[in-house]
């Protein structure tokens, strides 16, 4: 009780220290020539772990309720359960590490288009508004993989509604996508993406703020050799 009062009194100092935090979102898709493949999603908050540990001691911060570890685990479990029921999805696994604040979900798909609605629905279930509209497709015949991404204006509006101190949370947050293929890549349409030495992987790194503001587009049209 007393400690809480002290926390409250020195909250300004703590808030200054909490101003910026980093997190990484990594999306890795390995696509086979027949159109099946695997996805690995990673959310890594480990760079902010001391701050998160402090935040977890509080009931709420900057007006947001701090979820308990149990609650976070439950949300992750729900996401897994949802994936298992989804069409074309199999082999769903998840890991969570609350010491380092890293969570991963991996699964296999029959067709890359199976992923399309998943992220959207999971986010909608979590009541996260205004995410991107994103879709994947693979044409087995022409051997083209494409990711279409359209920044949604509501995301930007919602983001702009946040207080500056809340926006700061996203300052150093990054989004990385890695696509792996069995055949070498001939061309990529997005100039921000890089091709690996083996020409079988494409990586695109961007800041989450740029994504929200629509400054960066992660759409990509990747042509594989036939």
């Amino acid at each position: 009780m007393r400690l809480k009062r002290f926390y409250a009194a020195f909250l300004p100092v703590f808030i200054i220290l909490l101003l910026s935090s980093c997190f990484q979102v990594i999306e890795e898709i390995s696509l086979k020539n027949d159109g099946t493949g695997d996805v690995a999603l990673t959310i890594n908050l480990s760079q902010s772990r001391t701050k998160l540990a402090s935040v977890m001691l509080l009931d709420s911060i900057q007006g947001y309720k701090v979820p308990s570890k149990a609650k976070l685990q439950q949300e992750l479990n729900e996401a897994v359960a949802y994936l298992k029921k989804s069409e074309g999805i199999s082999n769903v696994k998840s890991t969570s590490d609350f010491n380092n604040y890293v969570a991963t979900i991996t699964f296999s798909f029959k067709d890359v288009s199976n992923i399309n609605n998943i992220t959207k629905n999971i986010l909608a279930r979590q009541k996260i508004k205004g995410t991107n509209s994103s879709s994947y497709s693979y044409n087995k015949i022409s051997k083209t993989f494409s990711r279409k991404y359209q920044a949604v204006s509501t995301a930007k509006t919602e983001f702009n509604k946040l207080k500056n101190q809340d926006k700061a949370v996203f300052n150093n947050a990054t989004y990385t996508s890695i696509y792996r293929f069995e055949s070498p890549v001939i061309t990529t349409s997005n100039p921000a993406s890089n091709l690996s030495k083996s020409k079988k992987a494409v990586m695109l790194k961007s800041s989450i703020i740029d994504l929200i503001n629509g400054k960066v587009n992660v759409s990509n049209q990747i042509q594989l050799s036939k």
């Binding site: 990484q24 990594i26 890695i178 690996s196 992987a201």
Partner: peptide, 10 residues
């Protein structure tokens, strides 16, 4: 903290 390094084949 934990982060990731990528080799030339990502």
């Amino acid at each position: 903290y934990t982060t990731y390094d990528y080799d030339e084949d990502y």
